[in-house]
Design a protein around this nucleic acid. Structure first.
Lengths: 216, 216
DNA sequence: TCAATATTTATACAAACGTATAACTATTAG
DNA sequence: CTAATAGTTATACGTTTGTATAAATATTGA
């Protein structure tokens, strides 16, 4: 009669936290922060709602933790591609653009998350700091790569002009990323990186679409 | 003793509806759709909550009406600039880009609204249709202007290539619009249209920054 | 094997939510 | 001036929300 099946399993703290955060992010992407209720989060993570309060002292704290986690993952996604150092700046720029305009960076969920967090990021000082740092870091890396690529080609450029080019290229990438994520069926798979590279080539005045170096 | 001050005023139906919709949009921009509660909407519109149900049979209907209203306003904002017909395509393209990259189109509230509506637009078929139509309309207009400007300069271009250029220019505008709205203090007032025109000039291969025609 | 402990479940509560309906009153038509 | 109408307020109801606390149980160390 009495089956001694355990009624629940205890998981390592970090693993549970991550599961709760993942469920939170999915729900925020689907229904916004207010739509990510503690009960629904618990259901998705397959625990009861009381457990959330055991790991996070409030919903506010869970949301902040989820944001931090997400931004870290996104940063790693755009960093990870390039490990071998002796590739040219031009090639690294090409790869940076390509990886930023293909999955998993281009992804409906990522765009939805950006939208879902926007207001909260504006209101919360700590989250705003994380956002600004990530944004400037991304643009700074793009600016450095453009500078190196132009330098290799012996194209001279002033710092303010380089800043403008970086803002413009960043805007192209942001725009394509947003549209690719918001309208996933409106573009062919290779269309986004192709248009991105063509546009950035034109903007910085250096052809990027015919790479002679080996493609990883 | 008994002052015969009227306890409320009756307003024309359309005026009340618009006030309710405006309050709704402001709240959606601030806190998302779920944050736009009927009670808070009523408070902002300075009426009691019961009145909302007199004009809209449900919150769902109010949200849809607010979206339709907002998209109409945004469309008019990007249409309105150009009335005199005998200006060149190049000039009209310049004005189109400039007006799309300055207030009131570039505006934190507009970006927040875009973010706030994103999920709902994906889920609701009717709202999705409105969104797609507006988006394609905008890009179509941009594509036509680019085509005319290039044609005037005797630059030949194939239709698929024109499509790519339009997607790219649209992405530049979207990206700058988004960044200008999300980080209002990160750019100088003239920086966005300047960078936009420079980038689009480079992308389509036609200089737009030195206009010889009169500027409105 | 058994007590100690931290994880997990279970239950409860006040506040806020969308909705429904009744009561009031400014406005209009005759 | 009066009655009818529709805009508006007022109140209420069942659910869902975030939070709080008690109870149960899986796991660990001695």
């Amino acid at each position: 009669m009495s089956e001694n099946e355990p009624k629940f399993r205890r998981e390592p703290a970090q693993q549970r936290k991550e599961a709760l955060i993942e469920a939170t992010l999915t729900l925020i992407a689907e229904q916004g922060i207010r739509g990510a209720t503690v009960r629904e989060i618990a259901k998705r993570a397959e625990v009861t709602q009381g457990l959330i309060r055991h790991y996070f002292s409030s919903k506010e704290e869970l949301i902040s933790a989820a944001y931090e986690y997400h931004m870290k993952v996104m940063t790693q996604l755009t960093e990870g591609t390039d490990l071998q150092a002796n590739t040219s700046g031009k090639t690294r720029l090409v790869r940076f653009v390509e990886s930023g305009l293909t999955p998993p960076v281009v992804d409906p969920r990522a765009v939805s998350l950006w939208a879902g967090f926007l207001n909260k990021v504006r209101a919360d000082a700590q989250m705003f700091e994380i956002h600004e740092q990530t944004y400037h870091d991304f643009r700074g890396r793009l600016e450095a790569l453009i500078g190196e690529a132009l330098n290799e080609a012996n194209i001279l450029i002033t710092p303010p002009r380089l800043r403008s080019l970086a803002i413009a290229c960043n805007a192209v990438m942001d725009g394509l990323w947003m549209e690719g994520g918001a309208l996933p069926d409106a573009f062919e798979p290779e269309e986004l990186p192709r248009i991105g590279l063509e546009s950035i080539s034109a903007i910085i005045g250096l052809e990027l679409t015919q790479t002679t170096e080996g493609q990883s």
